[in-house]
C-alpha cells in the first residue's frame, strides 16, 4: 500500500474535481440515447472545460486564459451545439441509436480503457506548474473514452459528438501541460474546430439524405 497521500491544496482539489466531472460527462455520453441529451452533455462538458480554464487563469495568474475561457464558452457551449442541433432539426430524429454493446458492458469497457490511460499517463512523469498531474491522467482518460464512444456507437451524431469531446479532452490536456501556449494558437485551434464542426454537420446531412437515417449500421458497401 502506498503511504498516506497528502491532500492537495484547495486549488488543486477544485481543479481535479472539475476534471473528474469532465470525465464523468464523457461516461454519461456513453449512456445518453437521445440526440438532445448528447448535445447537452457535450455543452455541459465544454462548460466544465471553460470553467477550468478560468480557474487556472485565476489560480495561476495567466490572464490570457480568461480570453480562452470566454472564447471556448462562446464557441463550444453555445455555437457548436446550436449549429449541430440546427443541422439535425430537419432530420426529425430524436433517438440517436444504440451501441454495439449493452450500456453496462460499454461502461465497464470504458472503465478498463480509462484505467489503462491513467496508468500509461502516470508512467510519463510529466509535471506541470499549472495543474496537478491527476488532471492530465483524467484528460487522457477522456480521450480514451471518447474513442470508445466513437467505436461502439452506431450513429453519426454520437460519433461526431465523440470527436468533439475528444477535442475537449485535448483542451483539458493542454490546460495541464500547455497553459502558457500563446493565445493566438489556441484561438486558431478553436476556429479550426468550428470549421470541422460545420463540415461534420454538412456530412451528417448528406448522410441523412442518402440513408434516410442517422444510423451507420448499413455503411458496409465499401470493403476490401
Amino acid at each position: 500500500m502506498a503511504p498516506t497521500v497528502t491532500p492537495p491544496g484547495t486549488y488543486a482539489g477544485v481543479a481535479n474535481v472539475l476534471a473528474v466531472l469532465v470525465l464523468l460527462s464523457e461516461f454519461a455520453m456513453l449512456r445518453a440515447a437521445l440526440l438532445r441529451a448528447q448535445m447537452r452533455l457535450y455543452a455541459a462538458q465544454s462548460l466544465l472545460v471553460s470553467v477550468l480554464a478560468a480557474v487556472v487563469a485565476w489560480g495561476r495568474d495567466v490572464p490570457e486564459l480568461y480570453v480562452l475561457a470566454a472564447l471556448s464558452l462562446a464557441l463550444k457551449v453555445v455555437v457548436v451545439p446550436w449549429v449541430v442541433m440546427r443541422q439535425l432539426r430537419q432530420t426529425r430524429t430524436e433517438i440517436a441509436g444504440s451501441g454495439v454493446l449493452g450500456v453496462a458492458s460499454e461502461v465497464l469497457v470504458a472503465v478498463v480503457v480509462a484505467v489503462l490511460a491513467f496508468f500509461a499517463t502516470s508512467r510519463f512523469h510529466i509535471a506541470s506548474p499549472a495543474l496537478p498531474t491527476t488532471a492530465l491522467g483524467l484528460a487522457v482518460a477522456v480521450i480514451a473514452v471518447s474513442f470508445v464512444l466513437m467505436i461502439v456507437r452506431r450513429d453519426v451524431v454520437s460519433q461526431a459528438v465523440g470527436f468533439f469531446s475528444l477535442e475537449n479532452g485535448v483542451s483539458l490536456a493542454s490546460l495541464v501541460v500547455a497553459a502558457g501556449l500563446p493565445l493566438i494558437l489556441e484561438v486558431a485551434f478553436l476556429f479550426d474546430l468550428l470549421v470541422a464542426v460545420v463540415v461534420f454537420g454538412v456530412l451528417m446531412r448528406v448522410h441523412h439524405r442518402r440513408a434516410r437515417s442517422l444510423s451507420t449500421e448499413h455503411l458496409t458497401k465499401l470493403r476490401g
Binding site: G13, V20, L24, A104, V111, F118, T121, G137
Partner: peptide, 23 residues
C-alpha cells in the same frame, strides 16, 4: 446493471485519481 455499473465507475475512478495522481 447500468445503475450499479455507474457506482462501480465512480469507485474505480476514486481509486485511480488517488493512486495515480495523488488527487
Amino acid at each position: 446493471t447500468e445503475f450499479v455499473a455507474a457506482a462501480f465507475l465512480l469507485a474505480v475512478l476514486a481509486v485511480c485519481t488517488l493512486y495515480f495522481g495523488g488527487g
